[in-house]
Amino acid sequence: MTGENKQQNSGLLGWALFVVGFAGALFVGWIVFPQLLYSTKYQPINYNHAIHQEEAGMSCEDCHFFREDGTYAGKPKLAACAECHSEPQGETEDEAKLVSEYVEPEKEIPWISYSRQPDNVFFSHAAHVKMAEMDCTDCHRDVEGQTKAPPVKINRLTGYPNEVMKMYVCEDCHAQENVSNACDVCHK
């Protein structure tokens, strides 16, 4: 190999390496990193939204309702489940677990919340649902017809599930809708 060739080759090789580094970093950044960032947790019981809606004929508000003082109750308490599930309603393993591990010993089910905001955040469901007339699915996953409770992806760094809304999302929407973005509108 002549010196010139060597030079050329090494130049090409250099650029190739640049591309390798570039592509590798993109791969790590876009594909590997998100995998590494989250751990997966499973709900204590696989809740079947579809069956409650379709077969039990329940509406969303039966479980996800506003309290009298305007605060939002979120997930139902065990007492609500126990109304129907005092004994297993079917053959599934989850059903048996529900009754034996939670309903009978009167232990609240430790549901993992997909989108619960941290302590220092006040989120008014009333403001968004009643006033701004937003749909639940504007922020939350659509659970209609869902037969399986999806696993919860938890950010290893922050400790929050990936569906928890970030502040910039709130800010952007507030700015867009011309709603106050003052800190104390949401923080406490």
Partner: peptide, 9 residues
Amino acid sequence: QLAKDKAFA
């Protein structure tokens, strides 16, 4: 915040 929640509801 709570009072507004109640009013909104």
